[in-house]
Design a protein around this nucleic acid. Sequence first.
DNA 1: TTTAGAAAAGTGGTCTGACCACTTTTTCTA
DNA 2: TAGAAAAAGTGGTCAGACCACTTTTCTAAA
Lengths: 217, 217
Amino acid sequence: MSIEKPTSKMFIQIVSELRALIRDENIPAGGKIPSERVLAERLNVGRSSVREALRSLELLGLIETRRGGGTFITDFRNHKLVEVLSTFILHEETDLENVNETRKILERDAIRIVSANETLRKLPVWDSLCDNLELEGIIAREDIMREIVIASENRLVLKIWILLKQYGKEAYNGFSTEQEQPILQAFISELMIGNTAEAISSFEEWTELLHKGRDIL
Amino acid sequence: MSIEKPTSKMFIQIVSELRALIRDENIPAGGKIPSERVLAERLNVGRSSVREALRSLELLGLIETRRGGGTFITDFRNHKLVEVLSTFILHEETDLENVNETRKILERDAIRIVSANETLRKLPVWDSLCDNLELEGIIAREDIMREIVIASENRLVLKIWILLKQYGKEAYNGFSTEQEQPILQAFISELMIGNTAEAISSFEEWTELLHKGRDIL
DNA sequence: TTTAGAAAAGTGGTCTGACCACTTTTTCTA
DNA sequence: TAGAAAAAGTGGTCAGACCACTTTTCTAAA
């Protein structure tokens, strides 16, 4: 295992490497991860760099360190993230939630508009979206929502939406997993049929799922 | 400024001290914070400890570091948003429809949120609004909607709403006439009861009426 | 006087090595 | 064999040293 250090942010890379290490060695929640010195040697970096990465993860509540004992993966319930965020940086955290919530407001309305307008529902883009979904089984949430927002024909909303997307990028931007696919399929179906309420309901469900399933480490 | 180091987590303390420092020195979003070396000296700790704290904040997206430049407080709202919005509206001769429609989207959602939350519905502001309406029979639309948007507790939406209100000011900003009053009354009533669908329906009706009245001009 | 370029200072990024305080493991007694 | 002492391991912190890059300052030419 080695790390390139071409550009920027060693500690970010280390976080990433750490994640791979935990996966590869199958370290369970509550399990112990290698010592800082060992990590430094294995990852071929200085101990202080390892520590900077670990401290970040600790602040996020993802790991726990015991002086003289070692470093351990936090016993599940990573919901701590939100807690820690709100405890430490109250205003900023609510701002971030505001961003994502605002974006959802715009998305919801775009769905409403498209779903309620037959012409918009018949746009060829939905068919190709469905084809993609069936063929590849995977599709980025933002790609879907972008098409819907574009279709709703409010350029100002589109601009704001893109802006919010950039700022709130930590959540909601993943790819659809197998688990999400049936919901996503239902969502698009309802949308194309024009069942506004059902489409929005599926949308909420889908979003909820994405939010939960986000890999933290 | 000094730090005790009795037990546990120097870097947590530093994060806390850092917050105080930013507050005390009134460093604005986008502003520069003292260099790592200066912080280390002022807080009477080692530079690596300062760095561990900073790295945590960076992972949270609260600060931004530029190699050779310094460390800055992340500036994620205000300027850029306002800028983009204004350039959009000023440069591209935009149809006001977009502006007003977008504002309506936000308003509609604020109504939904307030109407669906008992705590928000019980805010004393609605009572005084009703009193005003009965006593004077006249009330500005924007005053009503502002209260509702504020109550919905999304500061970002509030900011965008205010902005849109400024740009789209030729419409929707009138006072309630006798004709509108029963609808407005119904709207607020439904809102306070928690009948979301009915409230929004009344809202649409009310808005429609206002819109017509404007068109005459 | 102005300004373009070079030098210096400042700053984050990383590494090394050194202690300390504490915990876990091992070893050595009684 | 059990208990205590020693050793090893581990996180916590600090100091100093380079490096790469940016910003500021200074200098010399136009």
